[in-house]
Amino acid sequence: MRNTNNIILETAVKVLLFFIALYSVYIFTAGHYYPGGGFIGGLMTAGAIVLLLITYDIKTVVGILPVNFRILTAIGLLFAIGTSAGSLIFDAPFLTHAFGDVHLPILGDLSLHTATLFDLGVYFVVVGVTMTIIQTIGEDE
């Protein structure tokens, strides 16, 4: 194959990657009242890492993100099961979530939910599973 020089893509991705990652965090936190949540946020993060994999190569991306995505999946499942089983301690049905209004110094009045922690678990599972699938497909030639 020709030895091509994709300088435009490499320069553009260096800027675009942060916007996509920021947008995935936004759509994850917006997920309680608006469209979004852990699943689509995780897919966006996986999309950002896939863009990095397309632009550079597997060796560079492993150097940038030394994360074992199988362990990330396990951590996510632990989060999801742990937060949903935590309601059993308070004698409530499985998957019951609690919320409360909290006043923080700078951020003001916030409504904090334990469902966000469950969603964080979903986020980790989606990122881990998607990246495991894509890396497994990409590695065999």
């Binding site: 996509i20 896939v50 397309i54 190569d57 497909i137 990409g138």
Partner: peptide
Amino acid sequence: ILAFIGTVAFAKYLEKGVIIERERN
């Protein structure tokens, strides 16, 4: 964003014949 990533992947496949490289040469 998803359409952009898809188009970039297709373009790289047409240009280099491989989407995810093991190591750049």
